[in-house]
Nucleic acid binder design. Structure first.
Lengths: 356, 356
DNA sequence: CTGAAAGCGCTTACAG
DNA sequence: CTGAAAGCGCTTACAG
């Protein structure tokens, strides 16, 4: 804008002060500090000793130039990105949301970042998790398969770090944290029996044979408990639920009521189902626990806060998260203390509250 | 273990069948398909046309060798990782959890993965988000600052793609989605006034002057509504809450009741506070809405499901997430349609339910 | 449509 | 303790 008269011609050829913003590299930092990029790397990584004077000069240059490490380049060189992947069926289900957020907390505490993936219980998406992009961008995977099952053991074996969360023992060649779902169903039902209930319904089993969900195992436990009490398994008392959500629980309870079946106890596959079911029951004038005692599974935060407070089988999702992250990081670091692939059973316990 | 007698000496020097598992590279795939890595890259990226026969040969080799792209290497070359970062104060707060999960959904739909970060409203951690590792590992950032405020505008400006979610307009050089928190407080309070309440309390303002939270703006709206109705602002009706959680709401309600103040309406800074407060009120025999009408903010899922269903000021977190992801991706792609940094106000609306 | 080569920004043996 | 150089596995102008 200013006339060129007052400036030497050459002035127009010097670079503008606002250059194309080439990112600052370690070499730039080194040049400013009078060393090479190698020394900068040693200072920043702490892998090799560096003299205090050199360190100070480097750090000053880092600050002055606003240097930020190119994590992708480091990742290519070292094979580590500092990222973990968590893949669960659906984050809309409270239990998985709480589990995933617990993993984020625990990983963050140990200095790792986390990416979240949802499989929607879809086989193709579960396969994509195992072989996909994010798998290689992150250093390890915590994965709850839903559509993949025991028949897919070859797929679930991996030379990359992985911890499986499972509704049933999947195979022995990877770390896995397994729920005792039969035990959960049996103990939940036994709790209702102990409260004097005899006509106990269940909401939850999934009729999709392709899904190895917790539902079928919990149903088995429910049947075992009834059998141990000398009670028959009545199909009219069992209602399926494809989606284990609040809405699914409300709909299933409506279905139970509409069928006219007489019940005095209700075991729901998880807390979300149970809370939706309680809501529907009360809307129809059914008292909980007076007319029907209800118990869920998971002990989500909402369970303790609902009115009436929901009895449940507590699963320590924070503990599962901590264990899973610990095992995964041990694998990634090739810790000497890491004992190799193992199967751990996740603990559970019945929590008695007002709903039963 | 087996005696070497039966084997030729040379046998011990041939490589074992289980080699050190060098990862398969594009060059390996090319060698198997009779082309170079460049052609493999062209096939896999789709960036350049490749003859059908060559493509088929490459894809066959990819399958046979079980090739998985090294995403880190591609990221170093292209400057893209396919990863977005979402940073919010705390995932334990329902609104942020729902917002973050909505971002995951929307990003996934568009083919991006998401990493989640929590700042805990801590200034150091917010600065780390802006300058940290994950910033450079991901292609863009959706960030709700809490400790950083208008005074930090220089820090919030960036040459890297960013979308700010804000409780108050922060600065004009970045995309930002801003809540009209004064309006939210005013309309929530006006709703209670319209329901005939005159002694309206508020739970929420944060007394930490370092935090530019929504609380102070919503408090201002609350005062405006009272003033417009000709009512005085009574300090004894306002209770602070440092953490906007269910527990925080229950504790604040206890505090209100213990103070002996007479109230007939209650505006809570968010739904989590409100649900905790309702629980505490009812436990002390206070009827909602008979004795005290209650309204929250956010319209989290629990709001509609609680008993009584909670009135609230709905914020469309799914819409916020979709808009934020859309703006961020447009920045990353340098879309021609991208209009440059802009400020959008997030819509809200009062939802009347049973609690008022 | 394909090959040979350069280069993204780091880390790390190899010398000194 | 530091320099010069190789190489991680891709993508992409440059030739043909």
């Amino acid at each position: 804008m200013s006339p060129r008269g007052g400036l030497p011609e050459v002035g127009f050829d010097v670079p503008m002060t606002t250059e194309p913003r080439r990112p600052v590299t370690m070499a730039d930092v080194g040049a400013a500090a009078g060393v090479t990029n190698r020394t900068v790397s040693n200072v920043l990584s702490g892998n090799k000793p560096v003299s205090p004077a050199t360190r100070a000069a480097v750090m000053a240059a880092v600050r002055e130039l606003g240097y930020q490490m190119n994590v992708t380049a480091r990742g290519l060189r070292t094979g580590r990105t500092g990222l973990l992947t968590v893949a669960v069926p659906a984050l809309r289900i409270d239990y998985f949301a709480e589990l995933a957020l617990a993993v984020v907390d625990e990983a963050e505490r140990l200095g790792w970042a986390v990416t979240l993936q949802q499989t929607q219980s879809d086989r193709e998406r579960e396969l994509a998790i195992l072989g996909g992009h994010d798998r290689l961008l992150s250093d390890g995977l915590i994965f709850q398969p839903h559509a993949l099952g025991p028949a897919d053991r070859d797929l679930l074996v991996s030379d990359q770090p992985v911890v499986l969360l499972a509704d049933h023992e999947l195979q022995a060649d990877a770390d896995q944290l397994v729920l005792d779902n039969v035990g959960i169903g049996r103990e939940a039902t036994a709790h209702l029996l102990a409260r004097g209930r005899r006509r106990i319904a269940m909401i939850g089993p999934n009729h999709d044979p392709g899904l190895s969900t917790a539902g079928s195992y919990r149903l088995e436990g429910y049947r075992q408990a009834l059998a141990e009490a000398g009670l028959p398994a009545r199909p009219d008392l069992v209602v399926g639920a494809t989606r284990w959500t609040w809405d699914g629980g409300a709909a299933a309870a409506e279905e139970l009521l509409a069928s006219g079946v007489d019940l005095d106890g209700l075991f729901c596959g998880n807390d979300s189902l149970a809370l939706g079911a309680v809501h529907a029951l009360r809307r129809h004038g059914v008292d909980v626990p007076g007319d029907v005692a209800v118990i869920g599974v998971d002990d989500t935060r909402d369970a303790a806060r609902s009115d009436p407070a929901l009895s449940t089988v507590a699963i320590d999702s924070a503990g599962v998260a901590a264990t899973a992250v610990g095992l995964l990081v041990a694998q990634i670091r090739r810790d000497a203390a890491y004992a190799g692939p193992q199967t751990q059973t996740i603990a559970h316990r019945v929590v008695h509250r007002a709903s039963s």
